[in-house]
Design a protein around this nucleic acid. Structure first.
Lengths: 149, 149
DNA sequence: ATTGATATGAAAATCATTCCCATCTAGCTT
DNA sequence: AAGCTAGATGGGAATGATTTTCATATCAAT
């Protein structure tokens, strides 16, 4: 058991990018890929524990962090300081519009921002300029729900 | 003692924006205004304590948070999750290029981003869209210093 | 001066995240 | 197939920023 072909992609291949292929990493990865929007490490850990697939919280953190560093996950920061992760199939740099209600994320065309950031980087004299762009709001559904009370 | 006229502006007037005018708030505010770039609450607290103007850490946090909420301070998030504050004289929405070495902040022309963000907000169907844009890098000075080792 | 709403601050509580370290295991090597 | 070891795991303790608690102090209106 445990050789069913995954529906979306092969976690094993992805895991290989960050080191040794272990069961835990595959589990965390699969869970991350199954999530629609952004998730926190703790939430993911809870989900796994609830699903009867216990993985250490530490491992979840390590795996997610490693994946983000490998450029296979996007990271954003909640207003409370929590880090949220999202699996990124492609290697391209992207920005999202995130729903603060449900975590749903919508990739947005960030080309204008990229060029703008590059220009700033070039003209400022600063070295190693990186940028963070986050758009957040209430998606139509959550907005509806919020208005209904 | 403690009735010297501040060099830059009148903290008292600013403080009035967030509630009662107290000595502590004036002190925190004055300290914040005296700082060039962004500062963390703890750093500001240390500075004050060192200066022989002890103010409770709690109060520093409360004051800075209140000020940020009142729109008189900008807030950014460090990679470690720490919040950094910066006094903002005007009420206008601004974005900065921040030096990760020394905290120096350079206001940048963010007009392109604003229009971009507005467009996204309009076309997405999301409500209450807000955006966070952070540019960070090493300022020429810090870069020099970093290279010299 | 009296007074009641606010503000203060030391210590304790939270909370996400990281560290420690004894124990396991993937993936060779023999 | 058994042995080996660098790399991985995970429970619990540690960290570090921020918040809460609550008894005390202070503003500012009366």
């Amino acid at each position: 058991m445990a050789r069913n072909r995954p529906r979306t992609a092969a976690p094993s291949q992805e895991v290989a990018l960050i080191g040794r292929l272990t069961q835990q990493r595959a589990i965390v990865l699969e869970a991350l890929m199954a999530v629609e929007g952004f998730v926190g490490a703790q939430a993911l850990h809870n989900r796994l524990t609830g699903d009867g697939t216990p993985v250490g919280l530490t491992t979840v953190y390590r795996t997610l962090t490693a994946f983000a560093e490998a450029g296979r996950a996007d990271v954003v920061r909640e207003s409370n300081g929590e880090r949220l992760f999202r699996y990124r199939p492609g290697p391209d740099h992207r920005h999202y519009l995130i729903c603060t209600g449900c975590g749903l994320s919508l990739p947005v065309d960030s080309e204008p921002v990229e060029t703008w950031a590059e220009k700033i980087a070039r003209t400022s004299g600063f070295a190693n300029v990186r940028h963070t762009v986050e758009l957040a709001g209430l998606c139509p559904d959550c907005n509806q729900r919020a208005r209904g009370r």
